[in-house]
Design a binder for these strands. Structure first.
Lengths: 348, 348
DNA sequence: ATGAAAGCGCTAACAC
DNA sequence: GTGTTAGCGCTTTCAT
């Protein structure tokens, strides 16, 4: 019955229908629906309206509402790679949760890094009069801001404008590197290697800087011999084993969990065990890997979910920020079992 | 200049503004924008309108358009877990691409499996007059269809209604199981084990059935001793090694790539190598893992992207389907290096 | 070939 | 307390 007269089957139910059914004017219906404070409606009228709504299966038309009020409840999210990793998913998730909390809905578009797709996506969002746009990338990097973005409010998520002329929120790579290294230092290690990526990037530079800061704070001299490079995936970690062993490090900070996974493999083939022969800490906290290696990998998490949340908050003006600097989100440690005894048992 | 007069700064530019600037009526503007066939507009008028649009930085208001036309260009996608795995991301990606192709935009909502969130999400979509809704889950399973869904067109993606009263598209688990097993058979194996999950599910039953079908087709007797159970993750695979070895299998079909990863580990600790001592094939094609194990894992892919695409196509009525059966999408093999020589070099 | 005007579903003054 | 009415930005007859 209820679903007999809705927009799916037959004629869509409008406010006018409800008004007629309830024997009141459409203004009255609007008032009770929006529960306007100072508009006092008779109890019986209110009741009749409520019943009519239920009876007819009426759903307000959000689009019409938007038209008159002038501002929509959409937030656009354009991503360069929704599916490549779980990372983009987490950004979406965070953005969606926070948007939701404030009555907004996410309009999502994937661009695959394609310029045309990007232009189209942004145009479409603009035409839908979004409240603003989140422009996100799946790994932390500099990104040219598409011109059209400037037609509305926007914030960059997990990327930043090289000209530093846009609000952006990114992970705190330096602090992350510091944290990872500190974990190792706290466990008594002094000879700590770092396996970094081969290409420059905020992660590359930031984490290395953090590593150096942590060493310095602990009074450990920086030794360039302990800085290794490797392709940022399993193969790179595997291949780095020889160099790592040659460096006589007792602990290693890997650029990411995938590298750590490859390293585990290489170490094991040489009959070495973790953390006894080598303490290792990763980065990213890529669940599928880190949580299930033997032993489970202690790592530092990339806060993608929080990046999404923060992006929305900045967009809506809920959080303040200084115009001239990047907003930064902390990379928290995730303690598991790859660096030794000082680890609390089972932390996520 | 262009961006001086748009909706961001100051008064939004409307069709009326364009009309005035071009010295024509708003109807004319509408006509040139929509490139109406039979409405013949003077070349100069057309040109003036085009220029005015550019000059003012005019963007059509998609919402107003929707209001009058009655049907929106939104497709809703409600997912139970956007971020848990890359899987949901792929569904979104596929859906988004296909929707885009037909001029539709994705409205995404995450529910975390929470009933209230789900209700709210659907309500919001209904209020935005979506063309229809894709209801998706991150792993293949039966799912109760929320009542509100029936107020609009919808299709279930990666899940299905237990009452079989809804259009649904799911992966072909049986064919997937057959394919995986066949890969092993083709490589000369006769004693093939299967490590299945411990809990019932379409994947559990389907893949086992496929396994049996492949054996039967090859004239290999089914041996219950070769059916092992394990938790569907690395730990399960690792722990299954003893039983696997005891079964004297020469090859094994793992329920998923994570199980295979654990198995690799366990096998290696016993000094066994892949594929020489044991051929293994996985399932899911979880990139981070499968492509980077040593040796790279041959597996069968779960077609999440295609599921998303197909969902949109069914929703829009682009593809036909029989009302009384699930629409099924093929799980293609992904050949790498874990089952032996007969594998073509480096696929995907 | 182009303009006037009605109306999509709704909100918000402003009457009564 | 409740109804009337004027738009919100746009499409679409129907005139001209």
């Amino acid at each position: 019955m209820t679903s007999e007269n809705n927009q799916h089957t037959g004629h869509p139910v409008t406010m006018r229908d409800v008004a007629e059914a309830a024997g009141v004017s459409i203004a009255t219906v609007s008032l009770v629906i929006n529960e306007k404070k100072n508009a006092r409606i008779g109890d019986d009228a209110r009741k009749r309206v409520r019943e009519a709504i239920k009876e007819l299966g009426y759903r307000p038309n959000a689009l019409a509402k938007t038209l008159v009020s002038g501002s929509s409840k959409f937030i656009g999210l354009v991503a360069d790679a929704i599916a490549t990793t779980p990372f983009a998913g987490q950004i979406i998730h965070g953005a969606q949760d926070e948007a939701w909390r404030h009555g907004y809905v996410l309009l999502v578009a994937n661009t695959d890094g394609n310029q045309d797709a990007e232009r189209e996506a942004i145009a479409m969002m603009l035409e839908h009069k979004v409240r603003g746009i989140l422009y996100s990338t799946w790994f932390h990097r500099a990104a040219e801001v598409p011109e059209a973005l400037r037609e509305t409010d926007f914030v960059l998520v997990d990327c930043f404008s090289p000209q530093n002329d846009a609000v952006a929120v990114v992970p705190d790579e330096v602090q992350g590197g510091r944290t990872a290294t500190q974990l190792l230092i706290d466990n008594g290690h002094r000879r700590i290697a770092i396996i970094n990526t081969t290409t420059p990037s905020p992660a590359h530079e930031g984490r290395l800087l953090g590593y150096r800061q942590a060493l310095e704070a602990a009074g450990i001299a920086f030794d360039p011999e302990l800085v290794l490079d490797a392709a940022p995936e399993q193969e790179g970690g595997y291949d780095a084993v020889d160099a790592l062993l040659a460096s006589h490090a007792t602990a290693v900070f890997c650029h990411n969990d995938r590298v750590a996974m490859g390293l585990y493999d290489g170490l094991r083939r040489r009959g070495l065990s973790i953390p006894e022969d080598m303490a290792v800490v990763g980065f990213d906290n890529q669940e599928v890997i880190a949580a299930h290696l033997r032993p489970p990998l202690t790592t530092v998490a990339l806060p993608h979910y929080e990046l999404g949340v923060k992006g929305v908050r900045l967009l809506l003006g809920l959080d303040d920020h200084r115009d001239d600097e990047l907003v930064t989100v902390e990379c928290p440690p995730v303690l598991r079992a790859s660096i030794g005894e000082r680890e609390p048992a089972g932390t996520r």
